[in-house]
């Protein structure tokens, strides 16, 4: 890891926000420090309300922060930008654009020539397995296909870091497993640097090179679990017999449950 360069760096990040109903200040994040190295997939798990989505929104530039520092490729994050692509939880592809026009949106915004856009769109349509659906509108797609389209849209804009906010939480269990395997394949093929937020321990262990376990509110980095399984070997069929996967998953599960019980006792 040391030989690699850190693409995303977060130092001493704290965040408070006023509660929507009571107006009381909520302490969401406390002294977050993390580094994402080039080509690495890092997952973030933690109990509900641990601030993992808040962290993602700050990194996406959608939520302003005051305390601490976050930067991508040495550039301090001050707002949304194409250097950070985001895959949202659900229904964030534009319903009035076809699959290919959604996927090419980032390049269109950048003002690339049409031929260049359609060439690159086709590449990502194929990568996520949406061939034959290029001219469909989102309402004609299944939940899993919508998320594939969302992933392709983000990848096609070629961000330095891809931020994923529980992207597979809203699809059915079967589809979720397929999408996880596909993301693994995509991570292997594209060598993208990915931050993956999830509340699913299995998902976090399956996808991550490193898994960051967050504590209950205020969110702190509780522990880092390194998952040492080559991407080529990550297929769900094999995982149930994979000693490393089981060890990591159980470790993450234990850490998360400690936090859940803390949250309940409070």
């Amino acid at each position: 890891m040391n030989a690699m360069t850190a693409k995303l760096v977060v130092e001493g990040l704290c965040h408070h926000y006023p509660d929507e109903y009571t107006g009381e200040s909520v302490h969401a994040l406390e002294d977050i420090n993390l580094e994402l190295y080039e080509g690495e997939l890092v997952s973030v798990v933690g109990p509900s309300g641990c601030g993992k989505s808040t962290l993602l929104n700050i990194l996406a530039g959608l939520l302003p922060y005051k305390v601490g520092k976050a930067s991508v490729d040495g550039k301090v994050i001050e707002g949304p930008g194409p250097d950070r692509g985001v895959v949202f939880q659900e229904h964030a592809i534009l319903p009035w654009r076809t699959v290919s026009r959604n996927i090419g949106h980032g390049l269109e915004i950048r003002g690339l020539p049409k031929e260049e856009i359609s060439r690159r769109v086709q590449e990502y349509v194929d990568l996520v397995g949406l061939s034959g659906f290029e001219d469909k509108y989102p309402h004609e797609l299944s939940g899993g296909m919508k998320q594939r389209c969302a992933v392709a849209r983000t990848l096609c804009a070629d961000p330095i870091v891809m931020l994923m906010d529980e992207p597979f939480a809203a699809v059915d269990a079967q589809t979720r497993i397929t999408l996880q395997e596909e993301l693994n394949r995509i991570a292997l093929a594209t060598k993208k640097t990915i931050l993956f937020i999830t509340h699913s321990v299995d998902e976090a262990a399956f996808l991550a090179d490193r898994c960051l376990v967050f504590s209950a509110r205020p969110g702190r980095l509780k522990q880092i679990v390194t998952v040492d399984i080559p991407r080529e070997k990550r297929i769900w069929e094999n995982m149930n017999a994979d000693a490393e996967f089981i060890r990591c998953r159980d470790e993450i599960l234990r850490l998360v449950r400690e936090e859940v019980s803390v949250a309940i006792e409070e």
Binding site: A60, G61, L62, G79, P80, G81, P82, R84, G85, V86, F88, H91, A92, I93, L94, H105, G106, I109, R110, R153, A157
Partner: peptide, 12 residues
């Protein structure tokens, strides 16, 4: 989220 999505793609 539609607006956020466009902004994170770099939309002015």
């Amino acid at each position: 989220r539609y607006i956020s999505a466009a902004r994170t793609l770099g939309a002015s």
